[in-house]
Design a protein around this nucleic acid. Structure first.
Lengths: 175, 175
DNA sequence: ACAGTACATGTCAAAATCAACATGTCAAAC
DNA sequence: GTTTGACATGTTGATTTTGACATGTACTGT
């Protein structure tokens, strides 16, 4: 039940509406956990019923702002500190990378190129985020995560470049 | 429907029984895609019904060996080359890393330590795998993936060490 | 006034996944 | 000979996740 704790965690960062949570899932959390609004709204209702979150305000367009309660905070801490992590993952890109060697050279090269383009894109987005980050606003709560993302994507980029090189050699080298 | 393609991919590598696939999911694929036997056996049945795989042999203990068919191979290639990748992930460890800064210092330090222990463990397992890998057996189909795993876990280790250092400073430094 | 778009919340049926139940085979150790 | 454990395949009910359907609100530009 990670969705529950993801929602609690985001509400610990700041009180939010379901709509805002949906966007955060889509923007910041997409590389760790994803959820659609059709999952988030029911989950908020369940969390409220369980007393882990509460509605702290009503805004425009029927929006409800939720905040975490002390009970919810305790549950979040318990999960982070005491619950044993589930290390398994679901990562389609990883699966593709694992299977790509099965392709013939030209196809393999093409898919690595496509992945490389995506990684470069991610990398520049993260670097822009890093440079534009107000050092006062998110005091270091956020910066290290961005840094980690940059490093992992850097490793991925280098690795992909090596694979592309390698896939090109047998045909392209020494005319 | 990544499970389907994961199974096709594994059968492209070599014909296998459901039991063998289950083990491969658990051992090699656990960082990309996981599946239990209760999902794998029905999926094999569906794939067989669809003509993407076929039974090529019966072994001891009622075991059935499946192999990919030409149709299945075509579908696998189509998925790898033409289908647009789903970049979203489900990764509880990533989620925890994202939320850990919310904890107070002592808890934060402790969870980073726990993660570090796990990463070190992964790292030594991968390095052993690298050294023990027959260069002739899995000719390079497998080696680059192991190398990537080593590099990513290395980045993770360094990052965690930095975070632990940082979390220790305000209290532990200059007596 | 009207159109388009972003905001905002919900529900529902289908599909995917998981944990538990269920059954049986074969080899090695004792 | 029998117990233990790895091998091997299945099913079932509950939970999680998805994609589509559904509805309404507020602002912005024309």
């Amino acid at each position: 039940m990670s969705l529950r704790h993801a929602v609690l965690g985001l509400l610990e960062r700041r009180p939010s509406t379901g709509y805002e949570l949906t966007q955060t899932f889509d923007r910041s959390l997409r590389t760790s956990w994803q959820a659609r609004h059709s999952q988030i709204y029911p989950e908020l209702a369940k969390l409220e019923a369980a007393g882990l979150v509460e509605v702290v305000g009503h805004g425009a367009r029927r929006s409800k702002t939720y905040a975490i309660t002390p009970t919810g905070r305790a549950e979040l801490r318990r999960w982070l500190v005491e619950a044993q992590p589930d290390r398994s993952q679901r990562n389609e890109s990883g699966l593709r990378l694992f299977l790509t060697p099965l392709l013939e050279q030209a196809d393999r090269r093409a898919t690595y190129q496509r992945d490389l383009a995506h990684v470069e894109h991610e990398l520049s987005a993260l670097k822009e985020l890093r440079s534009g980050m107000a050092p006062a606003t998110d005091p270091e709560v956020f910066a290290p995560q961005v840094e980690l993302g940059i490093r992992i994507n850097g490793v991925l980029r280098d690795w992909l470049l090596e694979q592309i090189d390698r896939a090109g050699e047998p045909e392209g080298s020494h005319q």
